[in-house]
Nucleic acid binder design. Structure first.
Length: 468
RNA sequence: GGCGUCGUAGCCAAGUGGUAAGGCAAUGGUCUGCAACACCAGUAUCCACCGGUUCAAAUCCGGUCGACGCCUCCA
């Protein structure tokens, strides 16, 4: 498969360091609040990448961190008058709930920064010993000038960066040797969480967290490092500097970055406050719809979120679920048991959809194109699986649909749900009215149910319902 | 200012040199008591605009206009 590598700005054939195994690190959220739908994009996209690689037979060691020490968490803890670790513990739990609802699988490991402080201190010491770090009154900085390749990921010209940073230099960063130097360790302020270290009681800089956690759980050299495109600079650039200077070898071979999610064509940002949490969206839609929406565009294209597009996504996903429901019914009710002659040919024909799907996914995870292959399979199933056919054929199609959807992390089975006795009774009454050909009454009951959010469908197999 | 991305039907979105996938919405039809689901049909002579290269371009090159991202915490 080919992946677009930010480092080389090219699509490259993916070859893991060790055959059959993939090590992958995805930068996770800072847990100071419920996650927003922008956070959800990398989670969904890279979870899909992981699922596809596993489908291809790779064993994927997938690590995604929680940043649980940070200014915003501290601010929140002061606001609520509770310890910072209570704030982060709460939002880690909430985040995991959202992930589950989006069908994002738990990572192999979800390390937390505060549990890995000693490793970070060790890394900083090594950097200091090698001359890549310096201590000024308890604050330790990374000496970017000493790392010749600094800027290779973001393809930045350091002189431009330095001139662009003039403003920073005059605002109290004058103790740095160079405006591009960044913090590895900072001393605590009153009331902040802190850890003992050779330079001061304090806490690590943001970038060193990921360098250390990737190293500890995946090794000094990893296959894939991923995250949002805004992390390219400075976060990932700094990770490269720290890791490569400390370990003396290349850090990540493939750098993957997802584009941003906009809201009604405007950038979403925490500081602007125009963001939706995943939780809020979950109140209006099944979060499978959000997942479908996220995968309907290529991960490197900007994606716009709006109510209209979510409606469209909901309906599109419904089409897939309806087809899956129908196949499951045919598996029970079709006339024949085993494959008919003409169905054997159809089974061969069916393989083209999977081929198209794989081709799309092999091409830098083109999920939009892969979804189109799923819809072609849906149409094929709706047309070719018939009550007069065999249960085996319906089953083959059902499994095919389930597997392709499964790679995308889309469940084809609806949540089992039991209706209120009152509603069941209304449905029964309507059936009686229909039997008596009292259609006025039948329609009245149907409309009443619709107002309660229950949509009825009369089929050959009897009356069915779903949420409107 | 530096680096980079994008502009395809009402909406979303693939396609990146060989003559426009797929989905949503809308329309007509079949099915249905009526609906819903499903199926069938048609639906962009054309891919922001201008010019160039080529037998051939939405796809390559140059320019124009427009939208946007990073360079600062941010997925």
């Amino acid at each position: 498969m080919k992946l677009y590598n930010t480092l080389t700005r090219k699509k490259e054939e993916f070859v893991p360091l060790r055959e059959g195994k993939v090590t992958m690190y995805v930068c996770g959220p800072t847990v100071y609040n419920l996650i927003h739908i922008g956070n959800a994009r990398p989670m969904i996209v890279f979870d899909t990448a992981r699922r596809y690689m596993e489908y291809k037979g790779y064993e994927v060691n997938y690590v995604s961190n929680f940043t649980d020490v940070d200014d915003k968490i501290i601010a929140r803890s002061l606001e609520e008058g509770i310890p910072a670790e209570q704030v982060s513990a709460r939002y880690i739990e909430e985040c995991k709930k959202d992930m589950e609802a989006m069908n994002v699988r738990p990572a192999t490991v979800h390390p937390q920064a505060t549990q890995e402080i000693q490793g970070m201190i060790d890394m900083i010491r090594t950097l200091e010993e090698k001359g890549y770090a310096y201590n000024v009154n308890g604050t330790v900085y990374f000496r970017t000038r000493k790392f010749k390749e600094y800027g290779k990921l973001s393809h930045k010209n350091l002189d431009d960066l330095r001139s662009g940073n003039r403003a920073l230099q005059v605002t109290g960063e004058d103790q740095k040797e160079d405006p591009l130097d960044f913090v590895l360790w900072k001393p605590k302020k009153e009331g902040e969480p802190s850890w003992q270290a050779p330079w001061s009681d304090g806490r690590p800089g943001w970038h060193i967290e990921c360098s250390e956690m990737a190293k500890k759980y995946l090794g000094e050299e990893i296959d894939i490092h991923a995250g949002g495109e805004d992390l390219i600079f400075p976060h990932h650039e700094n990770e490269i500097a720290q890791s490569e200077c400390c370990n003396g070898k290349p850090f990540a071979r493939y750098w993957l970055h997802n584009a941003f999610l906009n809201i009604d064509n405007r950038k979403m940002s925490k500081s602007l406050g125009n963001f939706f949490t995943v939780r809020e969206i979950g109140e209006k839609y099944d979060l499978q719809v959000l997942r479908f929406f996220m995968l309907s565009a290529h991960y490197r294209s900007p994606l716009n979120f709006s109510a209209e597009i979510m409606e469209s996504s909901r309906n599109a996903l419904e089409r897939i679920l309806t087809a899956a429901d129908r196949l499951r019914e045919l598996e029970q009710s079709a006339a024949e048991e085993s494959l008919l002659e003409q169905e054997k040919e159809k089974r061969q024909e069916m393989k083209s959809f999977r081929e198209k799907f794989q081709e799309a996914m092999d091409d830098d995870l083109n999920t939009a194109d892969a979804i189109s292959a799923v819809f072609e399979l849906v149409k094929f199933a709706n047309t070719e699986a018939v009550p007069e056919g065999s249960r085996e054929f319906a089953g083959i199609l059902r499994k095919e649909l389930e597997e392709l959807c499964g790679i995308l992390g889309l469940k084809t089975e609806r949540k089992a749900e039991v209706l209120d006795e009152e509603i069941e009774e209304m449905i029964r009454q309507r059936q009686e009215a229909r039997k008596a050909r009292d259609f006025a009454r039948a329609d009245a009951i149907r409309n009443e149910l619709l107002e309660k959010g229950i949509l009825l469908e009369d089929t050959r197999e009897g009356v069915k319902w779903k949420r409107a």
